[in-house]
Simulated assay, not measured.
Amino acid sequence: MGEAIPNFGQFLESLRGNMSLREAAKKCGLSHAYIRDLELEKNRSTNEKITPSPDTLKKLSGAYGYPYTELMIKAGHLMEQDFSGSYLTPIQVDLTAVFYIEIGTKEIYCLNQITRITKSIESLRDFSQFLDLVDEHDFKKVDTNIYVNFQHIRKYDEHLGKLYFDSLGVGLSVKMSEPYQCKYHDLIYPQIATNNNTSYEITFGKNSMLQSLLSSVD
Rank of each mutant, 00 (worst) to 15 (best):
L95F: 01
A63V: 11
Y184P: 07
I121N: 02
V170N: 13
K74Y: 06
L95R: 01
G205N: 15
G169P: 03
P190C: 01
N197P: 03
S61M: 05
K175A: 11
I108M: 08
E80D: 04
N145P: 09
C28R: 03
F11C: 06
I121P: 03
T105A: 12
Q113R: 15
R44K: 15
S86T: 12
S53H: 13
D135L: 00
S61Q: 01
Q129S: 11
S14P: 06
S31N: 06
F130D: 05
D37H: 05
P67R: 07
N7I: 09
D166S: 09
V174T: 08
L111A: 10
T118A: 09
N145T: 15
D218E: 11
L40C: 10
Y68G: 03
S212F: 10
Y147C: 04
E48S: 11
P52D: 04
R36W: 00
V134I: 10
T203A: 10
Y87R: 13
S167L: 11
K141G: 00
P179Y: 04
L12Y: 02
K59L: 14
E201Q: 14
S177H: 09
N145W: 02
T69V: 15
Y109C: 09
F8E: 05
L160F: 09
N197D: 09
R44E: 07
L187Y: 12
I121K: 04
E158I: 14
L12P: 00
S14E: 08
N145Y: 03
L78W: 06
E41C: 05
I188C: 06
I91Q: 04
L111H: 13
L111F: 11
F204K: 11
H152K: 12
E13R: 14
D186S: 15
K42H: 09
I202W: 07
Q92D: 11
S128Q: 05
T144R: 15
E41P: 03
Q92P: 05
Y147K: 03
T115Y: 12
S45E: 14
L172W: 07
D82R: 04
S14D: 08
H152I: 00
E158Y: 13
S216A: 07
L210H: 06
S128H: 00
S177A: 13
S128V: 15
E158K: 15
Y64S: 03
S20D: 08
T56Q: 08
R22T: 14
D166A: 10
P54R: 06
S61Y: 05
L163C: 03
E48N: 13
E158L: 14
H185E: 00
K183Q: 14
Q151P: 07
T96R: 12
A193L: 01
K74S: 08
T69F: 02
S86P: 10
D55E: 13
T118W: 06
K74V: 08
Y147W: 10
D166K: 07
N197W: 09
A25W: 06
